[in-house]
Design a protein around this nucleic acid. Structure first.
Length: 506
DNA sequence: TGGTAAAC
């Protein structure tokens, strides 16, 4: 890197930025265009600088199956190729079960099943096919279907690995399925010091069926390591909602797997949770198709308060502390504020300060390095804590502060955990959390501040993910223009990836 | 230039 010219270094940095935006590669002309925005240079200087990065293999140039000339970081190219190859070879290998046995077992199960037709087809398909995808919005019965898949697998004496990208998603999966779920990292025996995995191409998992929930959150890197560690004869089932926020890391893998046709796709469409007149459901569907949601405040479960940006914070506190409890009977504990970012107006930090001041009194409080905690505060665990069985993203309430012992007791859903002040770095206020962190969680009521200052975070998946977290009530606070801006913006999901075309080419 | 997360 030090040996490169200044312009070549700018190209490398621009490329890194593109990876951070989620792309697996960049078309050569788009890369040059992006570099031009940072540094002025003429065509031949740019071509020469790009050649410099290619000569030392910091970047590589390649032609996609589509004929397009694109630039990759070498490791990204290698991962994308490897993922395509693994998917293809798993799909082509024989499964370790007999079709006649499947047929017989299915027949037995069908008679006692309460599954809908589309759910039953998914259950059958995900055992009969090597690679399957189970998609559908919230309330369509993905977990019910998953449970039936696991039952079927058990009847057929298949060994199963049940996993998810996050600790919380794994924990949530364990209870309804009655099957121990782990994070993908744990399943593969991740070693952070070596940055490698105990299970890999040379030492594969023995399980016949691998089920991966919340797979919209998986990036190219994690899928690469998972597929390396899976035996060729295994069946894979990816479960997720493609309309939720894309992975923060590079790739668009669930989307690409579906698009490539390498997997059988089962899309659940019937919603069982809310009634048909629910605006939560219809508005989520409208947003998905790029239409403006119905914000007329005519329904019983979907409302919008139109206020100028500088008044959003104040209005959100009023809604959480007074309006929702008074008018709908939900306590502040049942209400979750979801917002795109930490900083700025109506960001996580802003809302947390306001609601802490509004909702808890100061008689029992302690000032720690990272901030003030009060008895009654709503807080969130920010790292998987296997000792106390509290996962990253779990929300609880401060029950007790012991100033002599220097401990804080937090009541979570099922656990009551004592934290020393020293351990409190794992805990943050949670009156508001980011929409990203809410993925996979559900709340009775969701309050969503949305204003134009949130500019680049205003993406179509954002209001979709936020409002589909709500079981009973959604309240938007902000401006129609910001909602419109978010719905029009699909740039986060339009990533340059070539996984689908690579699979097609093999 | 900015913004989002996760794993042991």
């Amino acid at each position: 890197m030090e040996n490169l010219s200044a312009l070549a270094q700018t190209i490398v940095k621009t490329m890194e930025q593109m990876m951070r935006a989620g792309h697996s590669h960049v078309p050569a002309e788009n890369l040059i265009k992006a570099v031009r925005k940072r540094k002025s240079a003429n065509n031949s200087q740019l071509a020469q600088a790009l050649q410099e990065t290619l000569d030392v293999h910091v970047l590589v140039q390649t032609t996609l199956p589509t004929g397009e000339t694109v630039i990759y970081q070498p490791r990204m190219l290698q991962m994308e190729k490897s993922v395509a190859k693994r998917l293809k070879s798993i799909a082509a290998s024989k499964a370790s079960l007999s079709p006649s046995k499947l047929k017989a077992t299915l027949k037995r199960i069908a008679s006692s099943s309460t599954l809908s037709d589309e759910q039953f087809a998914a259950v059958q398909g995900s055992i009969a096919n090597k690679l399957s995808v189970l998609t559908g919005g919230p309330g369509t019965g993905k977990t019910t279907t998953l449970k039936a898949v696991l039952d079927l697998a058990q009847h057929m004496y298949l060994t199963v690995a049940l996993c998810a990208p996050t600790g919380q998603a794994a924990k949530r999966l364990t209870q309804p399925t009655g099957c121990e779920a782990t994070t993908i990292h744990r399943l593969l025996r991740y070693n952070p010091e070596e940055k490698d995995f105990g299970y890999n191409a040379g030492h594969r998992l023995s399980e016949d069926l691998i089920v991966i929930d919340e797979s919209s959150m998986i990036d190219l890197w994690l899928l690469h390591h998972l597929l390396r560690a899976v035996k060729d004869s295994a069946c894979l089932l990816f479960v997720g909602d493609i309309h939720q926020l894309p992975s923060v890391g590079a790739g668009n893998v669930l989307h690409d797997i579906i698009q490539s046709g390498v997997a059988s796709v089962f899309n659940l469409t019937t919603i069982f949770r809310q009634g048909e007149d629910s605006h939560i459901v219809t508005n989520a569907q409208a947003i998905n198709t790029g239409e403006m949601p119905n914000l007329s405040n005519q329904s019983q479960d979907f409302f919008m308060f139109r206020v100028p940006t500088e008044q959003i914070g104040k209005m959100v506190s009023d809604i959480v502390a007074n309006r929702i409890p008074d008018n709908f009977g939900y306590a502040p504990e049942d209400i979750q504020v979801l917002t795109p970012m930490y900083k700025g107006v109506a960001g996580v930090d802003d809302i947390n300060q306001r609601l802490q001041a509004h909702l808890t009194d100061s008689s029992w409080c302690v000032q720690l390095k990272q901030g003030r905690f009060k008895v009654g505060d709503r807080v969130v665990q920010t790292k998987n804590n296997y000792d106390d069985n509290v996962m990253n993203g779990e929300v609880g309430q401060i029950a007790f502060i012991d100033k002599k012992k220097k401990t804080i007791t937090i009541q979570f859903d099922a656990e009551r955990v004592v934290y020393s002040y020293k351990k409190m770095w794992q805990i943050k206020l949670a009156y508001a959390i980011t929409t990203h962190r809410s993925q996979g969680s559900e709340y009775a009521a969701v309050v969503l501040p949305i204003h134009e200052g949130m500019s680049q975070m205003l993406q179509r998946n954002l209001p979709y993910t936020a409002i589909t977290r709500a079981k009973k009530l959604v309240v938007l606070v902000g401006s129609d223009e910001a909602v419109q801006q978010a719905i029009r913006n699909v740039s986060a999901t339009e990533r340059w990836t070539a996984l689908a075309s690579r699979i097609g080419q093999l």
